[in-house]
Design a protein around this nucleic acid. Sequence first.
DNA 1: TTGTAGGCGTTATCAA
DNA 2: TTGATAACGCCTACAA
Lengths: 333, 333
Amino acid sequence: MNQKIFVSAKEVADRAGVSRSAVSRTFTPGASVSEETRRRVMEAAEALGYHVNHLARGLMRNESGLVCLIVSEMDTPYRSSLIRAISHQLQAVSKIAMLINTDRSDKSVDDALRLAISYRADASIILSGMPDKSITDLCVKSGQRLVLINRDEEREGALMINLNDREAAHRAFIAFQRAGCRRLAFANSDVGTPSLKAREEGFVAAAIEAGVEVIVERFGPTRYQSGVILAQRLLTREARPDAIFCANDLLACGVMDTARHQFKLTVPDDICVIGFDYIEQCSWSSYDLTTFAQPVDQIAKEAVSWLTHPAKTDSIASQISPELVWRGSVRGG
Amino acid sequence: MNQKIFVSAKEVADRAGVSRSAVSRTFTPGASVSEETRRRVMEAAEALGYHVNHLARGLMRNESGLVCLIVSEMDTPYRSSLIRAISHQLQAVSKIAMLINTDRSDKSVDDALRLAISYRADASIILSGMPDKSITDLCVKSGQRLVLINRDEEREGALMINLNDREAAHRAFIAFQRAGCRRLAFANSDVGTPSLKAREEGFVAAAIEAGVEVIVERFGPTRYQSGVILAQRLLTREARPDAIFCANDLLACGVMDTARHQFKLTVPDDICVIGFDYIEQCSWSSYDLTTFAQPVDQIAKEAVSWLTHPAKTDSIASQISPELVWRGSVRGG
DNA sequence: TTGTAGGCGTTATCAA
DNA sequence: TTGATAACGCCTACAA
């Protein structure tokens, strides 16, 4: 069964009446081959169905063309749009994404990076979790490029792309104030990843600075269902909040639906809501959510261009300020 | 810079005081190595940070461990959940997904398959588009396994997993009839992929058989925005439909939102809606959509288990009947 | 511009 | 159980 019959460069060479090297050169951009030789080689290759063996090529060149994408919960709207953008950018520079599914544990991220090393991946892009320093050091030492997206932790030799979560949270607070909201709340998941924490801290800090109190509620993963629970907890309080900043859009959707359908509240009249991520669903007319836009394409471009450009060896941090997209879930604006 | 310094089996062997073969055997499951040798090798490997080079291993074994996933519009909820399920299943059998982003053209699918051949992928799984027969033949001839999901076209030597779209559409018709709907409509995209066509044809056929007329409207890609347009077209007709079967859930969401917010209709009292796919958003309380569930996990399992098991050489077709998940967008039930 | 020779890191084979 | 040796398919000098 597993008798894979691939045609090798030698066979092409024989058929074209040239040497193996000539075949190799034909498929190496910028190598010196005569027009005539190239033509004959291409003809033979076409006829035989020859394809350069990227495994063998990677072995020689020490460059596999593979880039490892490490993600958990990849079917989440924000994640999947980021994956799409990154894989698109990678293909534009003739690289290809190896997708690795991790659970929330950092151990599984370590394993993923080990796999990346085994496949001699040119780079690894980490969207979820935080690997151990020893393993990232090994990656970097092996010449692998490392990109950490929204990980908010330092790693030597890596590119770190982070959003300015605190500043964004501050702007959310101001938006609520302008809308005349009095009783602010922050709805967070309880997974406690750095960026989620930063959003909460930034929001609370801004409020304290202004002498305003904030209710913070945390529950579950950053999903719709958690938003439902969070809304139930927040909206049954004695002093019902009239503004909720949600750690991400999925939570916001759950919060809005619950506020409307279960508590018969009107958005934005009774309660204002702001989210984070800019997932497509939030533009649907059932939500029309004011939210911070993660610039997915920009993130992908920065990551990939750094992979291809020979950058400095010391680590680089990139700070991006997400744009606040005004829609109908906040009064005024 | 690009000076990748990887530690090889030889270095490990030297440090452990054994031969390269011993190292190789240590990392080959089921090979015969003494406990003592294994221990010393592992120790040296650990100290040096050795990782088996999968590129070289793939070269020898003629088995790369790579499986090519060919998808377009991968950030769509249904697609991303399928990708997640498949990559998860692949990892369970120690394979790894190479993700390839294609646009709608079949040409790019051909290119993707060429890439799969170049990387000596053990298999390719096609979720979008339909490649040329010549290229799939080459894949199969090269010993690559081929899986076509919802492609509805025959390819020699491939596993074809299809949903029974016609039968599902028939059940949708019956559901509407039981709900007492009189004026039926089908909302489709105009991209005309086989499964979308089949759903339309099945629905229309069922209606004709029962002597009922159906309005069919087609527009744009299978996205929310198309649903908005389709609803506008359908709901401004003289004889406004009181039941709409949508080719997929995203269309259904757009249709429902538009019916409610723009036309002030009530679901399911004024109009019943059925979707297709079972994306998470449809369970949100703003939609609560009755829909056909694509058994994503089952599809993934079937695909991956076929890859690993040495199956017959002739092509195999698998027909799956999607379950109708009853929710609040259809009366009665 | 072309061909020859050697090596990349691994595994399979075979003899010890 | 172990070690030497020959592939795997390719690329890169080097010499012609």
